[in-house]
Amino acid sequence: MTALIIVVGILAVVGAVGVVLSTQPLYSALSLVFSIGMLAILYLILNAQLLFAVQLIVYAGAVMVLFVFIIALLNPKAEDRPILDVRAVVAFVAVITITAALFATAHNGITYSGSNFRGAVVGASHNDQDPAYTKHAFDFKPADVNSGQAGNVQTVGGQLFTVFLLPFEITSLLLLVAAIGAVYLTRRVPKTEVDT
């Protein structure tokens, strides 16, 4: 299982690197699709099935199809390869540092307390009776993954429509605003007789 996670994880990273290094915009977009697909498989391995389906339907199936559609429609020329300069070095160091910090956090474990707001959610897959439960991200066992109900449709739906109802509704309002804005921006401007 760990081997599978490592292989899929490496493929996801390869896809992500491809996004940055491809000179053709379409190849960048397709690398992103590949990376998204690999992430979806990782979710599936971690038993987060709903997340797997959402990742594929929303990101690979809808958002990225639109990206690819627009790229083909505009048919942009191939870009130059990014040049290695000071900015690139700074960005590289920053990325390495953040990644190392994330790995260190994951390895040392994060402590959830029973009354912790996030703990109530994340704890759905762990032992949330334990007041101070330390979870090591790297040492999960199959039993751990199997017993987890955190990723299934019922749990996510229940949380979404009870605990997170307000943020959920506000987000939907945000999307509505964005949709109205998009329609307004792309409307046909009626011809005026002023600019002759």
């Binding site: 099935q49 709903l50 797997f52 389906a53 594929l56 690979a60 199936g61 449709v153």
Partner: peptide
């Protein structure tokens, strides 16, 4: 368990 969603996901690809 999520057969229906799986079908939607795959056909969208």
């Amino acid at each position: 368990n999520i057969g229906l969603l799986f079908i939607l996901a795959v056909t969208s690809l």
